[in-house]
Simulated scan of single mutants.
Amino acid sequence: MNDARYRLVSPPEPIVWRPGFGPRYTLFVDVEEQFDWTAPFERTRHSTSAMAAFPEAHARFREQGVALTCLVDYPIVDDPAAVEILRDVVADGRSEIGAQLHPWVNPPFGEPLTPAMSFAGNLPQGLEAAKLRSLTDAIATAFGRRPRAYRAGRYGVGPDTFATLTALGYRLDSSVRPGYDYSAEGGPDFSASDPRPCRRGALLSVPLSTLYVGALRGGGAGLYRALGRVPYARGVASRLGLLSRVALTPEDMPIGAALEAVTIAVGEGVELLNFAFHSPSLVPGNTPYVRDATDLRTFHDWWSAMLTRLDRLGVRNASLDEILENAL
């Protein structure tokens, strides 16, 4: 992401953490409706029934001492049953409700239903701001507290997003996904984004964690981008153990590579690892990542193995509160 494209309240500044804070990990969950990921975007054809599986998932994480930052979108906050489930989640004292904007299902509506407009940052500034206000107000009404953390659906930040979030009182954004490029669909290009947390004025930016493993991992994002310009080069490099890109999510990410990446990152002094998953993955058939019961077992086994490794490495969980309190 080229910061020159973004109208910021001030240039980004690297975060310094309070002594003794790290290493930590956090888990932000995209709590959203189910919809057909392969179909054109629609306003109404979606469901929130998968939220029935959320209490069990929350219990698993709570037993391991893991706080969930639940980034909810409009169909979730508009569903009284989903809201009641999430009220019980935040009653654990460490989890918290944040916001996630899916513009195609979030009023007010004024944009065409096109792939490019599914990235909220492509909307006219006034419309993006109006949708964010609508979502923020709905969350505040449902939960009695304004959300402090945000992620753009489809990672769709744009030129005005950070300034708008700041004006609405948000404290943290987790929309940036280093190493990934969505420009072919009309979205942002994060392939050269800095993976380190930073401050953008009053807003703390905590990117999703993207790590690299393999004999050539020192080349990192730059080498990975270069390989992308050669047909099949990334796949060959991965199969040969030279370079693989690893996102910290159980969704389409092998546990072996993820464990290796986390072990290396902690050894190199990374202070905060940012994990994520989509709530509809808790029920088979709702995302490409969990298609059946076998995939769901793999999903849960992934977390069991990862949390065990993090514990052995001495990496503690960090709630949203703890992140905000320790970022200097």
Rank of each mutant, 00 (worst) to 15 (best):
N2G: 12
Y6Q: 06
L8G: 02
V9W: 05
V16E: 13
R18E: 15
P23A: 07
P23S: 10
T26V: 11
L27S: 04
V31A: 07
E33P: 07
Q34D: 15
F35N: 09
W37C: 08
T38A: 14
T38P: 03
P40A: 13
R43E: 01
R43K: 10
T44I: 09
R45H: 11
H46L: 13
T48N: 15
M51L: 15
A52N: 10
A52P: 05
A53V: 03
R62E: 14
V66T: 09
C70F: 02
L71K: 00
V83G: 01
V83K: 02
E84S: 14
E84L: 13
L86H: 05
V89C: 13
D92R: 00
G93W: 05
E96N: 10
P103V: 00
N106Q: 12
P108D: 01
P112A: 12
A116N: 05
P124N: 09
Q125E: 14
E128K: 00
A130N: 06
S134W: 03
A138M: 08
A140R: 13
A140P: 07
P147Q: 08
A149H: 01
G153W: 00
R154D: 00
R154P: 03
Y155E: 02
G158S: 11
L165T: 00
T166P: 06
A167P: 02
P178W: 04
P178T: 01
A184S: 14
G187K: 01
G187M: 06
P188G: 04
S191E: 07
S191N: 12
R196W: 10
R200M: 15
R200Q: 14
A202C: 03
P207M: 08
S209T: 14
S209G: 05
T210Y: 09
T210R: 08
A215G: 07
G222N: 12
G228Y: 08
V230L: 15
Y232F: 14
G235Q: 12
A237V: 10
A237M: 05
A237R: 03
S238W: 11
R239N: 11
L243F: 02
P250I: 02
P254F: 06
I255N: 08
G256C: 06
A257C: 04
A257G: 08
A257S: 13
I264W: 12
I264G: 11
L273F: 03
N274R: 05
N274Y: 01
F275N: 06
P280G: 07
P280H: 06
L282A: 07
P284Y: 00
P284K: 03
G285E: 12
D292Q: 10
A293Y: 09
T294E: 15
D301K: 12
W302S: 11
S304I: 11
M306E: 02
L307I: 08
L307C: 09
T308N: 13
R312K: 14
R312Y: 09
L313I: 08
R316L: 13
N317V: 01
L320T: 05
E322P: 05
L324H: 01
